[in-house]
Simulated scan of single mutants.
Amino acid sequence: MDTIMTEPVIAIISLGDMGTQISRVLIENKFRVITAGEGRSEKTLENIHNTGVENTGSLKDTVEKAEVIISLTSPERSLRLAENTAMCLKDSENRPLYIDLNSNTSAVALSIEKLLTQIHIPFLNGAVMGTSKDIPYTAELVISGVNRNKFFDLFGNLFKIKDAGEKTEAASAYKLLFSLVNKGVNALFFETMTAAAHFGILDELNKSLEDFLPGTYQDLLKTTPTYPQHIFRRIDEMKGLSEMLKNENLPNVIASGTAETFDKVYHSSIFENEKPQGVLETFQIFKKLKYT
């Protein structure tokens, strides 16, 4: 398929919170959105129905109908989804544009591109900067690769889009490096709170840091309270970034140290069943931490 028609059929695989919100925007703008509901949970199927997305059954049936595929699974599953899609389309005449928005490492993004271009499926790498509730207002879709102009043509008026350039892996590097800043700051504070709890000065130090670094604490409000639920995913993300930097012969001490700090906190289980409402409440959890 050499050209992409106006308002093509968009397949979103798979339909979680981010996919649901993107689907809503597309449907509001008269796009036909389809997804593979086969094997999904009752909750997901209900969400598909309520959003107005068309359930086309199996992955094979879905991708064969699509002119554009948007992959919105987890980074750990993105390569497998691309492999399954390639298998479904290998003997088909359909060659949809495949857009991966899964915040992959550079190596994974390049592996997906190689896999798909071998069977002449055009590929576009990308990532989402922001949460599902920020779509389409403040969240940005970062894209990179030779097919990015097709993305602008289709969605330029619907979403905030940042062009990371022609190198396929650039969007991956952009998202991971941006993540390193906010995750590195959280890791710094987590390591500080671990030591402060050990010396019995957590409350006192916390108050001093809040007084002297009010801007930093304001920034932490946006991310820190989510760590108890999602810290495991951030370990893998920072390990992937560290590996990417190492492969490029770039400094990776902060990235690898951030992953190590998160890993220690995760395996301490202090965040288990915790749902803090703010920064200070999150840091109070470190009083539970015991190192031997």
Results as ranks from 00 to 15, higher is better:
Met1Phe: 12
Asp2Tyr: 14
Thr3Val: 13
Ile4Pro: 00
Met18His: 10
Gly19Lys: 05
Thr20Asn: 00
Val25Pro: 02
Lys30His: 14
Glu42Gly: 03
Leu45Arg: 13
Ile48Gly: 12
Thr51Glu: 01
Leu59Glu: 05
Leu59Gln: 05
Asp61Leu: 06
Glu67Leu: 10
Ser71Asn: 12
Ser74Tyr: 04
Arg77Asn: 13
Ser78Asp: 12
Asn84Ser: 13
Thr85Asp: 04
Cys88Met: 00
Asp91Cys: 06
Ser92Gly: 01
Ser92Pro: 05
Ser92Arg: 07
Glu93Asn: 15
Arg95Val: 03
Leu97Pro: 06
Leu97Phe: 02
Tyr98Gln: 04
Tyr98Thr: 00
Ser103Gly: 07
Ser103Trp: 09
Ser106Val: 10
Ser106Phe: 03
Ala109Trp: 08
Thr117Pro: 06
Gln118Glu: 15
Ile119His: 07
Phe123Met: 03
Phe123Ile: 02
Lys133Phe: 11
Lys133Pro: 09
Tyr137Glu: 15
Glu140Gly: 02
Glu140Met: 11
Val142His: 08
Val142Lys: 08
Val146Ile: 15
Asn147Val: 10
Arg148Lys: 13
Lys150Asn: 08
Lys150Tyr: 02
Gly156Lys: 02
Lys160Phe: 10
Lys162His: 10
Asp163Gln: 09
Ala164Glu: 05
Gly165Ser: 08
Gly165Ala: 06
Leu176Ile: 06
Phe178Arg: 14
Asn182Cys: 10
Asn182Pro: 13
Gly184Met: 05
Asn186His: 13
Ala187Trp: 07
Glu191Thr: 08
Ala195Asn: 15
Ala197Gly: 02
His198Met: 10
Ile201Met: 14
Leu202Trp: 12
Lys207Thr: 10
Ser208Trp: 15
Glu210Ala: 14
Phe212Met: 10
Leu213Gly: 03
Pro214Asp: 03
Gln218Phe: 00
Asp219Tyr: 14
Pro225Trp: 12
Pro228Cys: 07
Gln229Gly: 13
Ile231Arg: 12
Arg234Ala: 03
Ile235Thr: 00
Lys239Ile: 04
Ser242Leu: 00
Met244Pro: 04
Leu250Asp: 09
Ser256Leu: 00
Ser256Lys: 07
Ser256Tyr: 11
Thr261Phe: 10
Ile270Gln: 10
Val279Pro: 00
Leu280Asn: 12
Gln284Glu: 00
Ile285Ser: 05
Lys287Arg: 15
Lys288Thr: 00
Tyr291Ala: 14
Tyr291Asp: 15
Thr292Phe: 11
